[in-house]
Computed example of a mutant assay.
Amino acid sequence: MTRDPGADNRKPDLRKMRGDRAEAEAAAYLERLGYRIRERNWRCRTGELDIVATDGDVTVIVEVRSRRENGRFGTAVEAVTPRKCMQVRATAQVYLRFAGLEGVRTRFDVVAVTYDWADEITEVRHLSGAF
């Protein structure tokens, strides 16, 4: 096994760290609303579901997006593209089958987390039934 000489000098992946923090904040926000978190970062060959929760008798698939304020890539909500919606729906079908939840009421929500340029969270926006 060869050792990567630059491994000790790598900078942390700030984008991933912000994404992980946004998912944790989204889960905490949903729990405060009374949702029960069933899964976080559930993966299969078709993709990943950020959060699977229940809201009463409804299974809720939550896509979490984060962006910086006034960033050049648009808002967190704008990051949920039609292609992403299709991918999340396909992955949700696999999850529901795997979990024995086929036929249950299901909803797709988005939680958009906005950071300022000092990496402080300035907004958590929840779109219920987003797609």
Results as ranks from 00 to 15, higher is better:
residue 14 L to V: 03
residue 10 R to D: 07
residue 110 V to Y: 02
residue 114 T to Y: 00
residue 81 T to F: 04
residue 4 D to T: 03
residue 83 R to D: 09
residue 43 R to W: 14
residue 61 I to W: 06
residue 107 R to L: 12
residue 66 S to W: 02
residue 2 T to H: 12
residue 14 L to H: 08
residue 87 Q to M: 10
residue 55 D to I: 07
residue 131 F to Q: 02
residue 87 Q to N: 15
residue 77 V to D: 00
residue 9 N to F: 14
residue 17 M to H: 04
residue 64 V to C: 03
residue 21 R to M: 10
residue 65 R to S: 01
residue 92 A to C: 01
residue 75 T to M: 01
residue 52 V to F: 04
residue 39 E to W: 14
residue 45 R to Q: 14
residue 25 E to D: 09
residue 120 E to A: 13
residue 28 A to W: 06
residue 82 P to A: 13
residue 123 E to T: 10
residue 33 L to F: 11
residue 12 P to Q: 00
residue 124 V to N: 09
residue 42 W to A: 03
residue 59 T to I: 14
residue 84 K to I: 12
residue 77 V to A: 01
residue 87 Q to R: 15
residue 7 A to T: 05
residue 124 V to F: 06
residue 67 R to D: 04
residue 123 E to P: 04
residue 78 E to Q: 09
residue 27 A to T: 08
residue 119 D to C: 10
residue 129 G to I: 08
residue 7 A to R: 15
residue 64 V to P: 03
residue 42 W to V: 04
residue 13 D to S: 14
residue 59 T to R: 06
residue 38 R to E: 13
residue 22 A to Q: 04
residue 101 L to R: 09
residue 83 R to L: 08
residue 83 R to C: 00
residue 68 R to G: 12
residue 129 G to W: 03
residue 24 A to M: 12
residue 128 S to R: 09
residue 108 F to P: 00
residue 101 L to Y: 10
residue 121 I to M: 00
residue 40 R to A: 11
residue 6 G to Q: 03
residue 82 P to K: 12
residue 98 F to C: 09
residue 118 A to E: 13
residue 111 V to K: 05
residue 68 R to F: 11
residue 99 A to K: 02
residue 92 A to R: 01
residue 125 R to H: 07
residue 33 L to Y: 15
residue 53 A to I: 06
residue 93 Q to T: 12
residue 76 A to H: 05
residue 58 V to T: 14
residue 111 V to S: 11
residue 66 S to P: 04
residue 128 S to K: 15
residue 54 T to L: 12
residue 5 P to S: 11
residue 112 A to V: 03
residue 64 V to L: 02
residue 106 T to W: 11
residue 79 A to C: 01
residue 81 T to A: 02
residue 107 R to I: 09
residue 45 R to H: 08
residue 116 D to L: 01
residue 32 R to W: 09
residue 34 G to E: 12
residue 50 D to I: 02
residue 65 R to H: 00
residue 18 R to M: 00
residue 108 F to M: 03
residue 111 V to N: 07
residue 30 L to W: 07
residue 44 C to F: 05
residue 86 M to C: 02
residue 44 C to H: 06
residue 7 A to D: 14
residue 83 R to Q: 10
residue 108 F to K: 04
residue 65 R to D: 00
residue 35 Y to L: 03
residue 108 F to G: 01
residue 50 D to W: 08
residue 36 R to V: 15
residue 27 A to F: 05
residue 86 M to S: 14
residue 78 E to K: 07
residue 17 M to F: 01
residue 86 M to G: 04
residue 28 A to I: 06
residue 73 F to Q: 07
residue 72 R to F: 15
residue 120 E to T: 15
residue 2 T to E: 11
residue 33 L to K: 15
residue 23 E to I: 04
residue 125 R to N: 10
residue 76 A to P: 11
residue 14 L to S: 03
residue 38 R to F: 09
residue 118 A to F: 15
residue 85 C to L: 13
residue 19 G to M: 07
residue 12 P to H: 05
residue 25 E to I: 08
residue 124 V to R: 05
residue 12 P to N: 06
residue 94 V to S: 07
residue 84 K to P: 00
residue 70 N to F: 08
residue 33 L to N: 11
residue 60 V to T: 15
residue 47 G to K: 11
residue 62 V to S: 02
residue 97 R to Q: 15
residue 110 V to C: 11
residue 57 D to A: 11
